[in-house]
Amino acid sequence: MLKSENLKEVVHNKNFARKDIVLIALHCDGGVGKKVSEIRKNLTDAGLRKSSQWNISYILGRLNGLAINTKDGWELTAEGRNAVSKLGIANKRLEADSFALDLRDLINKGIVSEDTKDFVLEAVSCYEIGHWRSAVVLSWIGAVNLLYEFVFQNKLSAFNAEALKRDQKWKTATCVEDFTRLKEFDFLQILTAISVVGKSTKNELEARLKFRNSCGHPNSFKLSERSVSSHLEILILNVYEPFSLSNVVK
């Protein structure tokens, strides 16, 4: 999805007609429920000052069904989304920029652990330059570290009790590093048992762990930007967003 922060990358393309630029601006951030004033602001913020003189309502109304004006604002139709795709927006790595911005936003909002911040920053940098395997591995390490921090701050007693129930030789964890004595797969099972994550989330994180393992060892495994984007999106939605601001005692 194209974000408004990335709009400046495309609106100055001389090959785009005025109607194309307005369509792309509407497409930003999902293309749903946008007021004309918001579209105009996105364009001027992107440095296209001449757009302040455009009759955007008139332009949108003459797009032959590519956009509709609802009670919530202008929205792209399915045909409109297809038209944006045909303009080649998806080929400019703007999706990569959006994911990178999401991760950097989370850092700025306050990931507590400095170690986790370092991993996230490295993962972002790797993703931006197309180092897919490194981005997968580092983003996973950062996500697991967030979960370690959360459990240590909020669920340590419950975690130790469950770990001991599963393994009588378990030595009580007294610091974050002690969690690394467990395999990450086993750590995820305990998280579900003590209600830190649900079963569906646990299953998806197990899949992320397998993906990380495939990327973390020399082998013939092939991956693409799209598969890495999906990996990052799942970690953002299920770990980075819910836990980055939550790993404090409540």
Score class of each variant (00 low, 15 high):
Asn160Val: 04
Ala161Cys: 04
Ala161Leu: 15
Ala161Gln: 14
Ala161Tyr: 10
Glu162Asp: 13
Glu162Cys: 11
Glu162Val: 07
Ala163Gly: 13
Lys165Trp: 14
Lys165Ala: 10
Arg166Ile: 15
Asp167Asn: 14
Asp167His: 07
Asp167Lys: 08
Asp167Ile: 11
Gln168Lys: 12
Gln168Gly: 13
Lys169Arg: 14
Lys171Thr: 13
Thr172Leu: 01
Cys175Ile: 05
Cys175His: 08
Val176Pro: 03
Val176Trp: 03
Glu177Phe: 02
Glu177Trp: 01
Glu177Tyr: 00
Glu177Gln: 04
Asp178Leu: 10
Thr180His: 09
Thr180Lys: 15
Arg181Leu: 08
Arg181Asn: 12
Arg181Pro: 05
Leu182Gly: 01
Lys183His: 07
Lys183Asn: 07
Glu184Asp: 13
Phe185Glu: 06
Asp186Trp: 02
Asp186Gly: 09
Leu188Ile: 08
Gln189Gly: 13
Gln189Ala: 14
Gln189Leu: 15
Gln189Asn: 12
Gln189Pro: 01
Ile190Gly: 06
Thr192His: 15
Thr192Val: 15
Ile194Met: 05
Ile194Asn: 12
Ser195Lys: 13
Ser195Pro: 07
Ser195Thr: 04
Ser195Tyr: 09
Ser195Trp: 09
Val197Glu: 06
Gly198Gln: 09
Lys199Cys: 10
Ser200Gly: 02
Lys202Gly: 08
Lys202Ile: 10
Glu204Met: 11
Leu205Cys: 03
Glu206Phe: 07
Glu206Gln: 02
Glu206Leu: 06
Glu206Pro: 01
Glu206Arg: 10
Ala207Lys: 11
Ala207Asn: 09
Arg208Asn: 10
Leu209Trp: 00
Leu209Glu: 03
Leu209Arg: 04
Lys210Met: 02
Phe211His: 02
Arg212Leu: 01
Arg212His: 04
Ser214Val: 00
Ser214Arg: 01
Cys215Gly: 03
Cys215Trp: 03
Gly216Leu: 01
His217Lys: 00
Pro218Cys: 01
Pro218Gln: 08
Pro218Leu: 03
Asn219Val: 00
Ser220Pro: 00
Phe221Asp: 00
Lys222Gln: 05
Lys222Cys: 05
Lys222Thr: 06
Leu223His: 02
Ser224Phe: 06
Ser227Met: 12
Ser229Val: 06
Ser230His: 15
His231Cys: 08
Leu232His: 13
Glu233Asn: 10
Glu233Asp: 11
Ile234Lys: 09
Ile236Asp: 05
Leu237Ile: 08
Leu237Lys: 08
Leu237Tyr: 02
Asn238Ala: 09
Val239Thr: 05
Tyr240His: 12
Tyr240Leu: 14
Glu241Lys: 12
Glu241Cys: 04
Pro242Ala: 13
